[in-house]
Simulated assay, not measured.
Amino acid sequence: MKKLTILFAITLLMISCKTEEKKEVKKEKFPTELGKVFEKHGGIDNWRNARTLSFNKGEEAHTVDLWTRRTVVNSPNHSMGFDGKNVWLSEKDSGTYRGNPTFYYNLFFYFYAMPFVLADDGIVYEEAKPLTFDGKEYPGVKISYEANVGSSPDDNYIVYYNPETYQMEWLAYTVTFRSKKPSDRFNLIRYEKWEVADGFLLPQALTWYQKDENGMPTEPARPAIEFTLPLVQKTALKGSFFEKPTKE
């Protein structure tokens, strides 16, 4: 009877340890100020509990599994995506699409899912020089990646936020996909319109800006890109949704 009592106690201890392990919270490494930006836009914990994001960019419908980053982009002329292993382009349009699907399929997901994608694994944070526009100063956080993280680990981002509201206002970024070499040439985007969808503050319009000799924004470089039909869900889509369509 004594042996049974000891065995029962050990079993309870093992169950208790497993329960505690399940309750363990991931220790965040991002700066406190960036955490306030995440909170302003809906909260990083809420984002990590979400599973599917969809939005439209013009006639393109983008759908992303937020946990696996599997993606589908459908448009009237072509479709492309990432099935978890490979990037694909729809067979019927493979001879007419002039872009690079590997570069494009998740390009606007990263712009649209700001600032939350700046909490991905393998990120290094540091304070950046503030950006000034129309007499207002916006503090910045620079984001770089550890070696061998993603397809372009040498990319850098700087998120600039309103110091009073902690809403994201600007994004500076480099592009190293083609060169595979670090760059200090930053492009600059203004996040000028936002909307609340399913508890998250998501962008309605992005505008690329020209810069002066000091790297500060001056005027729009081209018309704004607009987004519509935002949707964030906690349910996942079937894996087959992200697979390349079978040839007709």
Rank of each mutant, 00 (worst) to 15 (best):
A61Q: 00
W170L: 03
P76G: 03
S144K: 08
T52C: 02
G95N: 11
Y97H: 11
K85C: 06
E192L: 11
K27P: 07
H62L: 11
N187D: 14
L206V: 09
Y160F: 11
M114H: 06
S90W: 05
I189V: 10
Y173V: 07
Q233H: 02
F108G: 05
K181I: 08
T218R: 00
A128P: 02
T5N: 12
N100R: 05
P101G: 00
Y191V: 02
G43I: 12
E91T: 05
Y97L: 09
T207V: 09
Y173G: 03
Y173M: 08
E226T: 14
K181T: 13
R48S: 03
S94G: 00
D120K: 03
I6D: 08
K85V: 08
E169K: 12
K29E: 15
P217H: 03
S144P: 02
M80L: 10
G122L: 01
T218S: 00
T32G: 06
F30I: 06
K29V: 15
V64N: 02
E33Y: 11
F200W: 00
P130H: 03
R190S: 14
D154E: 15
Y191P: 08
F55R: 04
A50G: 00
Y160G: 05
T19K: 13
G150L: 02
F103Y: 13
E21T: 15
K26H: 14
E91Y: 06
K22Y: 09
E192A: 09
P217E: 04
C17A: 15
G35E: 04
T71L: 00
S75F: 03
V149R: 15
L4Y: 12
M216R: 11
E243M: 09
E39D: 11
D184A: 12
W88T: 00
R190A: 10
A128W: 02
K36T: 00
A119T: 06
Y104V: 15
D155Y: 10
Q210K: 06
D93E: 10
F82K: 00
Y104A: 15
W194T: 04
K193A: 13
T246D: 12
E137I: 15
G122P: 07
Y145M: 10
K36D: 01
E137D: 04
F38N: 04
P101C: 01
K238D: 14
N214K: 09
L231G: 12
E213R: 07
T52V: 04
V73L: 07
I158G: 07
G99W: 01
P76W: 01
G35Q: 03
Y166Q: 10
N162D: 15
R185S: 15
A236H: 09
E28T: 10
E20C: 15
N49K: 10
R190Q: 12
L13W: 05
P76H: 01
M1T: 08
V159D: 06
M114L: 14
R51V: 08
S144N: 10
A9L: 14
E33V: 06
N106F: 00
R48T: 08
D45C: 03
F82E: 04
E60K: 13
N187T: 15
F109I: 03
L7A: 14
N49Y: 00
K92P: 07
V124K: 13
K2H: 14
R69D: 11
K26Y: 15
F103H: 04
K23E: 13
E226V: 14
P31F: 01
K181Q: 13
S179C: 05
G43D: 05
K136H: 09
P245F: 01
S179W: 03
Q204T: 09
G95L: 14
G239E: 07
R51K: 11
N49D: 10
